[in-house]
């Protein structure tokens, strides 16, 4: 039976945490753990969810969980999984899962993640992407999108925010031939739950990249959390996709799938206008954002749909 609001466990495994009101990352971790159940073992590097989940002597995690060095999330996951097997104590239904932010994944922890995929260790890596180093006060990461103002890419008279494009993390991970990878958004919760469930059932390394808006860092009212996450997908600035590696799909090079491939996108301006981080953008910047989006979608449509099973 698939996991949904009705069927999921009543137990909470991420509770009493000190995340800001309306935190997208907290919602992603909460629901991911509800899918994985009480035998999951979690590891988190420095980041919002470790800063707000482990306030000594408090413990907001209802499953076994520990903090890793910043760069070592995937390496620690490998070690936990090997340790559980070596001790003979790995229970059935035990998923070794990591929750790292965008900075801890795409910048600082990329090497360890690449190593773990290379070894095909039996771990699940979840990147909750709030598009900057939020815990330390909103500094640009490799996954900060073009045009977003952060404290290290402030909007000024000449430059209006982040100068670089969001790193294609999903593509980097898939290029390893990983058994399973997916992108998701907390604004499309049933899709995220389904992907967590799918990842839970596949042996080997699995990776889920979930967009998790941050009301403080993005500059929108906390109650709009889910709307903003939905709009990111509706505008085409974020996408919902899956990848199954050669071993799982039987397709050489693996198979991509776009879970949502709309014929037309929602307007970009309302999405940008509802967030303070984009307040400095002018019409040329918005056009550049649209052009980059269209280029990205052309690539996804031509390569993935031609290669894989096609979009829904």
């Amino acid at each position: 039976m698939s996991v949904n609001a009705r069927t999921m466990t009543d137990e909470e495994f991420f509770y009493g945490h000190k995340a800001c009101p309306g935190c997208g990352g907290a919602l992603a971790v909460r629901q991911a753990l509800k899918v994985l159940g009480p035998y999951a073992v979690a590891a988190l590097p420095a980041g919002c969810m470790s800063a707000t989940g482990f306030n000594f002597p408090q413990m907001a995690f209802g499953v076994n969980a520990m903090i890793t060095p910043f760069a070592a999330t995937a390496a620690v996951l490998s070690g936990i999984e090997a340790g559980l097997r070596a001790q003979g104590g790995k229970p059935d239904g035990c998923t070794v899962v990591g929750f790292a932010g965008d900075g801890g994944t795409a910048d600082i922890g990329l090497q360890a993640l690449s190593g773990a995929i290379d070894r095909n260790d039996d771990i699940l890596y979840v990147c909750y992407d709030n598009e900057a180093y939020m815990n330390t006060g909103i500094q640009k990461s490799g996954l900060t999108p073009f045009g977003a103002a952060t404290t290290t890419t402030p909007a000024g008279a000449h430059e209006h925010g982040c100068l670089t494009q969001k790193k294609a993390l999903f593509d980097i991970v898939c290029a390893h031939g990983i058994p399973y990878a997916a992108t998701a958004s907390i604004g499309h919760m049933p899709d995220f739950l389904r992907k967590m469930e799918r990842a839970r059932g596949i042996p080997g390394t699995r990776f889920i990249h979930v967009l998790a808006p941050c009301p403080v860092g993005w500059g929108f009212p906390a109650q709009d959390l889910v709307d903003v996450a939905r709009k990111a997908v509706d505008t085409g600035l974020w996408y919902l996709a899956e990848y199954e590696g050669p071993a799982v799909s039987g397709v050489p090079g693996g198979a991509f799938k776009l879970n949502r491939a709309p014929k037309s996108f929602a307007l970009v301006e309302p999405y940008l206008a509802c967030q303070r981080r984009f307040a400095g953008l002018d019409a040329a910047d918005v056009a550049a954002i649209e052009a980059a989006r269209d280029e990205r979608w052309e690539l996804m449509r031509s390569r993935w749909i031609a290669n894989g099973e096609g979009g829904a």
């Binding site: 609001a5 009101p21 935190c23 907290a26 919602l27 909460r30 959390l225």
Partner: peptide
């Protein structure tokens, strides 16, 4: 509401 509460 139950599904989307960030704090559970």
């Amino acid at each position: 509401c139950y599904l989307l509460c960030p704090d559970g």
